[in-house]
Amino acid sequence: EDRTLRVATSVPQHHYLTRAIQTFADRVNERTDGEISFEVYPAQSLVTDQQMDQAVANGTVDIGIASASILAGTIPAFNIFAVPFYFDTREKLDHSVTRGNPIRTTLDEEIEKKGLHAAFWIPYGSIAMVTRDKPVHVPDDMKGMKIRTFGSTVSEFVEAVGAAPVVTSGGEQFLALQRGIVDGGLTGWSSVTDRRLYEVSKYVVATDHMYETHFALMSSGVWDSLSPETQKIFQEVGEEMESELMDEIFTVNDKAKAELSEKMDVIELTDAEKTQWKEATRSVAEHFYESGDDVSKTVFEEAEKVQ
């Protein structure tokens, strides 16, 4: 079966995510002796991140790189990764998001129920907070600040410490910081370097309070149309990539921190400070559990077990 699959990402060509799916594509292509090839459309040239799941569902693309934050609109249980400090160590991640763990299995099933299939999960790393000109160490420092956020649970985190969440489109994020429309913003470590946020903010706080994951998302239709041999290759390559990338994100984050420490103040939280943050944002976890649907409750209970 000779097939070409269209792949779309919403980040630039040399971004970590595009490189990850490109590596996946190259390996699958090699192991299928060229039978399966890929056309990669990076930088939302074909699909924006907001539309990614829909574009996969209606067949505009065969594989789309979507984030848990976007998918959480449809499957609220994905907000579990935004519950503060529940997935902040490698150990916790190894017991939750890697294959075979109950959280992973439950969420994969939810994806299948929506007519989609995650070829593999792309580990992305933790979320940091940049601030324009105010060093933040403890939750009290956040009082009255305006913070750019994404997603509903992320906003709750900001509100829990007395700051105000501001919705700004990705393109205006740099400007909003530069001009002071917001005082800070939550974002991935790689975005701080890639979007040159260090030019417009003095500090980056290693809150590392939430985990962000992405998916190589396919529709069930496309997945089912692949031969069993090809499916097996997808699974094998996906599995090896997941474990390689999980190692990589920790080095990538460390590298980003080292690089950034020359351009801005990197603020690491002490254990005592971290405890204060956990205390201050406990309500987010409670709210997630209480207002969550059955699946959210299930994954939350599982997440409690790995704390």
Binding site: Q54, N58, L71, A72, G73, N79, K114, G115, S152, V167
Partner: peptide, 21 residues
């Protein structure tokens, strides 16, 4: 068709309002 698809899987925006698509 897209609308019916979003209805069938309950697709929503991931915002505080959580509007149905």
């Amino acid at each position: 068709e897209s609308m019916m698809q979003t209805v069938s899987i309950g697709r929503r925006t991931n915002t505080t309002l959580s509007l149905p698509y």
